[in-house]
């Protein structure tokens, strides 16, 4: 039995290369987001996923894309891109353009693509967690066999409404996976300064939710754990809580330009040693799936793709000012003027 399960979880070389490409794409895409921000082409709050790529890659490869639901907070580019959202539309949204996923009304924090199962993109820490449970509630109500991935950061794990949702998700037996992306910081406040018990995975237990802590810096391990949990939830139709240990290499948001206020350079250097992209590179080489030249070629190819995305998004127009009134409601508008 154990052997069979192991076999099922063993990815093909093509799978491994795909995970690698996905992580690298997110990395380069977001490096370009940072460029856009520095150039004043992106504004507001912008939060990148750099360092955490293995986490989203593992989970998104474990669900049925376009069938299952995904919802997350404002660090949301990776989730949308991996679900198949048009990257030009994502970049255009970040730049506040008409061609953006929300026509420039949402920005970096609010990327939506419901056709691909992406339900945002939310800006209030922990506030979207009941919405995610609500998506799962609808699945239960309709018996449509969907699983909902409900992502949050470690900071959100303290919000009252999150505990309210844990209780109801368990009470109503919702097929919802609560995924705490524990990158060790709630903005600039380190885990041990914001959480009375830093083992956040334990927070499912009082509500009878099956819970565990896993490693999110190793794409292959993440994929294995994610697949096992997604399969369990789909079969059992009950919630699950997973604390995924990860680390963000960049600041909390684009406006966080002094990370030394809350962590040392030595700590960052130490964590760079477990860069999930480098880690998978080593596996690809070790298993003879790629050599240095091939990796360099992939990198160059992806950088070129990202450049094209950026150029296309940047060439697209801003929204027309009249659009400000569009879509407040589905069937009416508001009184116009100041």
């Amino acid at each position: 039995m154990a052997k069979q399960a192991e076999k099922k979880n063993l990815e093909s070389p093509a799978d491994l290369e795909q995970y690698y490409r996905d992580m690298l794409f997110i990395r380069h895409f977001e490096e370009k987001c940072n460029v856009a921000y520095r150039q004043g082409k992106a504004g507001g709050y912008m939060h990148v996923y750099i360092g955490m790529e293995a986490l989203a890659v593992g989970w998104m490869h474990s669900i049925r894309k376009g069938h299952d639901n995904v919802i997350t907070a404002y660090r949301d580019h990776a989730h949308a891109l991996l679900l198949g959202t048009d990257p030009v539309a994502v970049m255009a949204e970040i730049m506040g353009r008409k061609a953006g996923t929300a026509g420039g009304k949402g920005g970096s924090m609010h990327i939506y693509d419901p056709k691909n199962g992406m339900f945002g993109g939310w800006g209030i820490v922990g506030g979207h967690i009941p919405l995610g449970a609500g998506l799962a509630f609808a699945s239960k109500y309709r018996e449509d066999d969907k699983v909902t991935l409900n992502f949050m950061g470690d900071g959100a794990a303290n919000q009252g409404v999150v505990f309210e949702t844990f209780n109801m998700a368990s009470l109503y037996e919702l097929p919802c996976i609560f995924i705490i992306e524990n990158n060790e910081f709630a903005m600039g406040t380190r885990l041990e300064y914001h959480a009375a018990d830093t083992e956040l995975w334990k927070r499912g237990a009082p509500f009878g939710i099956k819970s565990e802590r896993v490693d999110g810096m190793d794409a292959l391990q993440m994929k294995k754990d994610a697949q096992r949990i997604v399969d369990w939830v789909r079969k059992e139709q009950k919630p699950y809580l997973v604390e995924v240990m990860t680390y963000r290499y960049s600041g909390h948001g684009a406006a966080d330009n002094d990370r030394q206020l809350y962590r040392t350079k030595e700590e960052e250097a130490e964590n760079l040693k477990r860069d999930p992209i480098k880690r998978l590179e080593a596996v690809l080489i070790e298993r003879n799936i790629a050599n240095e030249e091939k990796l360099e070629a992939i990198d160059a190819e992806i950088q070129e793709i990202v450049e094209k995305i950026y150029a296309e998004a940047d060439a697209s127009p801003f929204p027309d000012v009249e659009e400000v009134y569009d879509n407040i409601y589905s069937d009416m508008t508001v009184e116009q003027g100041h």
Binding site: P130, L131, G132, G134, R142
Partner: peptide, 15 residues
């Protein structure tokens, strides 16, 4: 807050 949010999520899914 919890049930207002869950109901909102259910509405987003079309209920």
């Amino acid at each position: 807050a919890g049930f207002a949010g869950i109901a909102t999520g259910a509405a987003m899914a079309g209920l």
